[in-house]
Design a protein around this nucleic acid. Structure first.
Length: 851
RNA sequence: GGACGAUUAGCUCAGUUGGUUAGAGCGUCUCGUUUACACCGAGAAGGUCGUAGGUUCGAGUCCUACAUCGUCCACCA
C-alpha cells in the first residue's frame, strides 16, 4: 500500500536503510545480478556483456573529501546506468596502503607517546601501523558507502593484501629478470624528513625568496678570478668544475685552464657545456655533480669526479672538511661568512626562484647520490604511447592526450625504492656479494632481505588486474579486464594512469581500460584549492547530513565539464536539495491525484509530456554514453522542474490523467536514479509494492531510447499554449491587474482555434475569461505565435488605471521641470540631482508599461 | 622558457559538430488567486559573449595576435 508521504523529503531518515537494502540484495555483485528486464531486441534478459570499473583506491588513512565524492559519484552514475541497461557490471573497490602518508601519520601518533620508529624497530613499528589500519581502515570505506557507491564489497581489496603482495613480487621479479629493473647509484631526490628517496613526480616546486651569491674562484697561478653565481653556496664543498658556454667570448680563453676552489683549495677544470646559460648570472656556473641534477648530467658528460658533501640527514659529510657535521642551513651561513672575510664574495642579490620540496611534507629536497632501484621506463612508455595514439585508450577530455604524450616522451627512469618500512618490501636478498631476486628467502644461511620498500604507485600500477586475480588466470580477469573506464582526477594522470598503462600492457598485454575519464578539482567559492589547514574546505559528510547525499551528488556533477575545475559552495547544494524536494512533491501530487477521478482519453498536455519524455530518454542516454554527465543531469533537472512540475502538473490539475503522470514519473525515476539513487529508490518503493529485491529500482531496466512517441504536433501546439499563457500573465502583471481579479480577454488571429480548444486550461492558469472577437482596443494587448489578445478591464480597474497614468504624467512633468531648472541643477548637491534623475527614469519606465 | 585551460548577466556556470531573438541557478525588484511543494508559484530588470583583426551568406562557437587570471611541465645555477 502506498504510504502517506511527508510534506518534505527527509533524506536522513532513509539513506542508510536504502543502502542496506541494496547491499542485502547482492546486486552490487555481478554474479548475483538478476536477469535483465531490459526490452532489448534479440537479448532476452541474459547479462552477457560485461562492464567494469576499478575504483581508485583511497588511502586507508584517509577521510572522504570532495574529490572522492565527485569521482565516486561519477563512477556510480556509470555503473548504475550500465547495470540498468542490462550489463553484467563490476565496480571493484579497495584501499591503498599509501606508503609515505600512512607512515607519516603513524609516526606522528607514536611521537605523542615520545616514541619514534627507530626506537621501536621495524617489526614493532609495522605492528603499530597494521593496528592503525585495522582500526581506521574501514572509516573511508564506510564513507564511500554513505555517498551511495554501488560497488562490489565482496571483491574489496587492499594493496597490501597477501594476494596483491604476491602480484607485486611477481611483477618485480619479472621486470628484474627481463632487465627492466636495475639497481644503481644515481642522483635522486632525497627528502630528509621522510628519510627516503622520492620520485620526480613527488617533488613540488615552491617559489621562495632567497639570495643569489656571487663567488670568486681564483684562476690557478694568477690573480685573476672567475665569478660564479649560486643559490646554494654550501654545495661548493663538492664542486669539481666550473662550466661556461662554449661560445661565450668572455670565457673562451679560460676553457681548459683550472681554478682553485676556495676553502677546500681543490684545483678543478674550467669546462665548456651547452647547458650553461650565457645570460644568467655571470655566465659561469659551479658544478656540483653529487648535489644537483643538472650538474650531475654535466658531470657525466665530462667524467667529473662526484663528491658527496651532504648526507641523508642534510648535514655536511667528512668531505666537507671543517664543516663536517654542520646542517646545510648552518653550513651555508658559515661558509658565506668565511668567503666574505677572505674576499671571495663579489655580491649578494635577492633572488626569487623555485625550490624543490617534498610533495608530502614540504621539506626542502636534497638532491644526492644514492643507491636505489629503478625501472627502465622508456621501453614501457613506447607501448603506452601507442595505446593512446591508436585510439585503443581514449582520454576524456581529449586535450589531455597532449599532456600525456609530452610526459611519456620525456619519461625518465622511475626510482621505485623507498627507505620506508610501510610498504611492499623489495624481494631481493643479499649475502655478501651474492644477490638473489625472489619472493621467498633463498635456501641457506645468512641471507638478508633488502630493507627498502616499493613506491606505493608500483602496486597501484597493477590495480586493474591484480585485483582480478593476476598473476593467476582467473575467470574475473578474463571477464572484466580490460576495464571499461578509469575515472580519476587529472592530477593523477602521470602518477597513476600512465603507470597503470605501462604495467598492464607489459604484464597482461592488454590495455588496463578503454577510456580514461578525468574530472577536475573541486575548488572553494573563491576558486582556490580547498585546504583543510586554512579551513576553506567543505567537508562532504556534514553536507550530506544537512542536505542529503543526492543533493551533494547533483551539485558535484551538474554544471561541470570533464577536466574542468569547479567551485562548490553551500547555496549550490541547497539548490539541488530543493530540486529533490520538487520531485518528491510531484510524487505526492500524483498519489493524491490517483485517488480522485481521471479522464479517459489523453489530453494535449498528455501527448506533449509523453513526447518530451521520449526526447529526454533519448538525449539522457546519449549524453551518458558519451560521458556528458553534466548535460544529462541538467537536462533531467530542467525537464522535471520546468516541464513536468511547472506545466504538466499544472495542466493535470485542470484535466487530470493519472496514468500518464504515473508513466512519466516512473520513467523519470529510472533516468534520474544514477544521479540521485536514494530519493529515486525511495519514491519507487512508494509507487511499487516490493515483493522481492528484484523490484528494486537499482535493477529496473533503463528506458529504451525509441522515438516512437515523439509527437511534433502536440509539442508545437502545447508550446503555443505556453507562450500564450505567459504573454497574458505578463500583460496582467504589467497592467497591475490583481491576481485574484478575473477579467475578460479577447483573442483573435490565425491560431485562435488553438486557444478555443484549450480555453479551459488557459482560463484557469491566467484567471481570465476568454472571448473570441477581433481587434479589441485595450490598455494591455499583445501578439504571440499567431494569436493576438486584449485584456478587458472592469469600469473600476480602468478608472484606477487611468488615475495612475494621470498622476504619473504629472509626476514626470514635475521632475522634468525640476531638472530643466538651471538653479536646481547647478545649486543642488550632485547626489540629489542624480536621485531625481533616477526617479524620473523609473517613472518613465513605469509609464511606458502602462501604454 | 614551453604547454594547456579560463575570460558569457551582480555572483557561480552551461552553451556537443558555426545557423532564428545567447540560457540556467543564486541574488535583486514587483506580486501571490490555486488540487504537490514557501526547500513554493507568477512576472520583471540585468549581457556590444576579455580586446583587436580575419575566414564566412552567417561567429559566443573556427583562425591569428594581444591582455588578465589559473594550472601543469621544465636542469637559469
Amino acid at each position: 500500500m502506498p504510504k502517506e508521504l511527508p510534506k518534505a523529503y527527509d533524506p536522513r531518515s532513509i539513506e542508510s536503510a536504502i543502502y542496506k537494502r541494496w547491499e542485502r540484495s547482492g546486486f552490487f555483485n555481478p554474479d548475483k545480478l538478476p536477469a535483465s528486464t531490459a526490452r532489448k531486441r534479440g537479448e532476452p534478459g541474459k547479462r552477457t556483456k560485461t562492464y567494469s570499473i576499478a575504483m581508485p583506491p583511497p588511502n586507508v588513512t584517509g577521510e572522504l573529501h570532495l574529490g572522492h565524492a565527485l569521482g565516486t559519484t561519477i563512477q556510480d552514475i556509470m555503473i548504475r546506468f550500465r547495470r540498468m541497461q542490462g550489463y553484467k557490471t563490476l565496480w571493484l573497490p579497495g584501499t591503498d596502503h599509501a606508503g609515505i602518508s600512512t607512515q607519516i601519520m603513524v609516526e606522528r601518533l607514536i611521537a605523542e607517546q615520545g616514541l619514534d620508529r627507530h626506537k621501536l624497530g621495524r617489526q614493532v613499528f609495522l605492528k603499530h601501523v597494521w593496528e592503525w589500519k585495522k582500526r581506521y581502515g574501514t572509516r573511508i570505506t564506510e564513507q564511500v558507502r554513505q555517498i551511495g557507491a554501488s560497488c562490489d564489497w565482496s571483491r574489496e581489496h587492499f594493496t597490501m593484501d597477501p594476494k596483491l603482495t604476491v602480484a607485486v613480487q611477481h611483477a618485480f621479479i619479472k621486470l628484474y629478470n627481463d632487465g627492466l629493473i636495475y639497481r644503481g647509484t644515481r642522483i635522486i631526490h632525497w627528502c630528509p624528513r621522510c628519510s627516503s628517496a622520492i620520485s620526480d613526480l613527488e617533488v613540488r616546486h615552491e617559489e621562495r625568496q632567497e639570495k643569489l651569491y656571487y663567488i670568486r674562484y681564483q684562476l690557478t697561478g694568477s690573480t685573476q678570478f672567475i665569478t660564479v653565481a649560486t643559490t646554494r653556496p654550501e654545495t661548493m664543498l663538492g664542486d669539481t668544475a666550473v662550466a661556461v658556454h662554449p661560445d661565450d667570448p668572455r670565457y673562451k680563453t679560460l676553457i681548459g685552464t683550472t681554478v682553485v676552489l676556495p676553502i677546500i683549495e681543490r684545483e678543478m677544470p674550467v669546462i665548456a657545456d651547452k647547458a650553461v646559460e650565457k645570460d644568467f648570472g655571470t655566465g659561469a656556473v659551479k658544478v656540483t655533480p653529487a648535489h644537483d641534477h643538472a650538474d650531475y648530467d654535466i658531470g657525466i658528460r665530462h667524467k667529473l669526479p662526484m663528491i658527496s658533501v651532504i648526507d641523508e640527514k642534510a648535514t655536511i659529510t667528512k668531505e666537507g672538511g671543517k664543516y663536517y657535521g654542520e646542517t646545510v642551513q648552518d653550513a651555508r651561513h658559515l661558509i658565506v661568512d668565511e668567503l666574505e672575510h677572505s674576499g671571495h664574495i663579489e655580491k649578494i642579490e635577492n633572488f626569487t626562484h623555485n625550490v624543490a620540496t617534498c610533495d608530502r611534507c614540504h621539506t626542502v629536497i636534497q638532491p644526492l647520490l644514492s643507491k636505489q632501484w629503478f625501472v627502465k621506463t622508456k621501453p614501457l612508455a613506447k607501448k603506452a604511447i601507442a595505446a593512446v595514439k591508436s585510439g585503443m585508450i581514449k582520454i576524456v577530455p581529449k586535450r589531455f592526450d597532449k599532456v600525456y604524450f609530452h610526459w611519456m616522451n620525456n619519461i625518465t627512469d622511475w626510482c621505485i625504492s623507498r627507505q620506508l618500512w610501510w610498504g611492499h618490501q623489495i624481494p631481493v636478498w643479499y649475502r655478501g656479494d651474492d644477490i638473489r631476486v625472489s619472493a621467498a628467502k633463498p635456501r641457506g644461511k645468512g641471507w638478508k632481505q633488502d630493507e627498502d620498500t616499493l613506491d606505493t604507485w608500483f602496486s597501484s600500477g597493477l590495480w586493474t588486474f591484480s585485483t582480478l586475480g593476476w598473476p593467476k588466470k582467473t575467470k574475473d580477469l578474463r571477464l572484466f579486464h580490460p576495464t571499461d573506464v578509469m575515472e580519476t582526477g587529472w592530477d593523477l594522470l602521470f602518477f597513476w594512469v600512465a603507470r597503470m598503462t605501462m604495467m598492464s600492457l607489459y604484464f597482461t598485454k592488454e590495455i588496463p581500460f578503454k577510456t580514461v575519464y578525468l574530472h577536475g578539482l573541486v575548488l572553494d567559492r573563491e576558486g582556490k584549492k580547498m585546504s583543510k589547514s586554512k579551513g576553506t574546505g567543505i567537508d562532504p559528510l556534514p553536507m550530506m547530513h544537512k542536505y542529503g547525499t543526492d543533493a551533494i551528488r547533483l551539485s558535484l556533477v551538474l554544471g561541470a565539464a570533464a577536466g574542468q575545475d569547479m567551485r562548490l559552495y553551500e547555496e549550490k547544494i541547497a539548490g539541488y536539495r530543493n530540486f529533490i524536494n520538487k520531485l518528491w512533491n510531484v510524487t505526492r501530487f500524483y498519489l493524491a491525484l490517483k485517488k480522485s477521478q481521471k479522464t479517459q482519453s489523453q489530453t494535449l498536455a498528455d501527448r506533449w509530456i509523453l513526447s518530451r519524455l521520449a526526447r529526454v530518454i533519448k538525449d539522457v542516454t546519449d549524453h551518458l554514453e558519451h560521458f556528458r554527465f553534466s548535460d544529462a543531469g541538467t537536462l533531467l533537472y530542467e525537464f522535471i522542474w520546468h516541464e513536468l512540475a511547472d506545466w504538466y502538473v499544472e495542466a493535470t490539475k485542470i484535466e487530470p490523467h493519472s496514468d500518464v503522470l504515473k508513466i512519466v514519473i516512473e520513467e523519470t525515476l529510472r533516468l534520474l536514479h544514477p544521479f540521485a539513487p536514494f530519493v529515486t529508490e525511495e519514491i519507487w518503493a512508494t509507487l511499487h509494492p516490493q515483493k522481492t529485491s528484484k523490484d528494486l529500482l537499482i535493477v529496473a531496466h533503463w528506458p529504451p531510447a525509441t522515438s516512437a512517441v515523439v509527437n511534433i504536433r502536440a509539442e508545437q501546439e502545447f508550446d503555443r499554449l505556453r507562450q500564450f499563457i505567459t504573454a497574458i500573465r505578463n500583460a496582467r502583471s504589467s497592467a497591475r491587474v490583481a491576481p485574484s481579479q478575473v477579467i475578460e480577454t479577447a483573442y483573435w488571429g490565425p491560431h485562435a482555434s488553438s486557444v478555443e480548444r484549450n480555453s479551459a486550461i488557459i482560463s484557469r492558469l491566467t484567471h481570465v475569461t476568454l472571448k473570441k472577437t477581433a481587434g479589441q482596443q485595450s490598455a494591455a494587448t499583445g501578439t504571440v505565435s499567431g494569436i493576438s489578445f486584449a485584456l478587458a478591464f472592469s469600469e473600476d480597474a480602468q478608472n484606477k488605471f487611468r488615475e495612475e497614468r494621470k498622476s504619473l504624467d504629472e509626476y514626470i512633468h514635475r521632475l522634468t521641470a525640476q531638472l530643466q531648472n538651471d538653479k536646481f541643477v547647478k545649486g543642488a548637491p550632485v547626489h540629489v540631482v542624480q536621485d531625481v534623475r533616477a526617479r524620473l527614469t523609473d517613472a518613465q519606465e513605469r509609464r511606458k508599461q502602462l501604454g
